[in-house]
Simulated scan of single mutants.
Amino acid sequence: MNDFGQYGIWVPGRFWPDDANVVAAAAHELEELGYGSVWIGGSPPDDLSLPEAILAATSTLVVGTSIVDIWHSDGDELAASHFRLSSLFPGRFYLGVGSGHAPTAASVGEAYVKPLTRLKSFLTDKLERVPHEERLIAALGPKTLEAARDLTAGALPYLMPPAHAAEARAILGPDRLLIPEQKVFVGTDPAQARAVARRVLKPYLTLPNYTNQWRRFGLTDDDLAHDGSDALVDLTVTWGGPDAIRTGIRAHFDAGADHIAIQALSADASPHLPRDEWRRIAEILF
């Protein structure tokens, strides 16, 4: 279904430095390591300057946003930026958008009411000029997955287990892209792995879009209390040695995913490009 392989890298936009040379070197290395894509998280700006810099530094790497938050976006500027990138780098850019969360809506003075309706309107109005096959949406629940099927090239689920991929594939059908994000920590010490995972997961424990989904896959309120249980960590983060990493990622493919956007977790808590971790994961997967 896609021509950019099985594995890509997901990384927050804020982790990319302002230094254009560092951005170019990191992007080129990802391509050389064998990754087929890179996904920019954390709602990158509508000018899409970072995706453009990554595309310009590489020759085959596919770049996507995962995702631009509609509450923070000027749809007209975003559509114009997409046109620029698709013209300069045909077939190598996906515009991923999503309806965000209540705090992101509140930050711009909006009420988080009927977010799916808002998302559909954004796609059919502001992004009308963006071809369906070049846009994706963050989709977790059935109705949003149906919107992904009907209005876009497919879905970008985030923080979901392989069981979600099976449900998503059933709704999307066989001809839509399914690209889940998967957090990965390479390390066999359970205490260290789970401490790193909890640090990363903590902001999501207050967001119903995720917690409601996790309950569907067997977690309870106790699992979501405080910093989250071991069961939450093991549901959402693949960690361990090479065999465990390969098995955890393979489960998404077995459930129907087309491509995996790997978020490499680092023991270093500072915002940075985890290039050492990208290399270690590449050694395991390629």
Rank of each mutant, 00 (worst) to 15 (best):
H82K: 06
H252M: 07
M160D: 04
A261E: 01
V130E: 04
L61R: 03
A106Y: 09
D222A: 15
F185D: 05
R250C: 04
A166T: 10
T144P: 00
A138R: 01
L205D: 00
A139C: 12
G75A: 13
A138C: 06
V11W: 01
L140T: 11
T65I: 12
R118Q: 15
T238F: 01
R92S: 09
V196Q: 00
T60N: 07
T152S: 06
D46Y: 00
D227K: 02
S229G: 05
S99C: 10
E133I: 06
G187E: 04
L205P: 01
G187C: 07
G5F: 00
D18L: 10
L224Q: 10
D222V: 14
D19W: 05
P242W: 02
I262S: 01
W214M: 03
A195Y: 05
M1W: 13
N209T: 14
T60P: 02
W71T: 08
A269W: 07
T247A: 02
R215E: 00
L88K: 15
G218F: 07
A282T: 07
L178Q: 09
S86C: 11
L61D: 02
H226R: 14
R169S: 04
G91D: 11
H72R: 15
W39L: 07
R280N: 11
E110G: 11
P203W: 00
H82C: 10
D276Q: 13
S87Y: 04
E277L: 14
A264H: 11
Q6T: 14
P115W: 06
G141E: 13
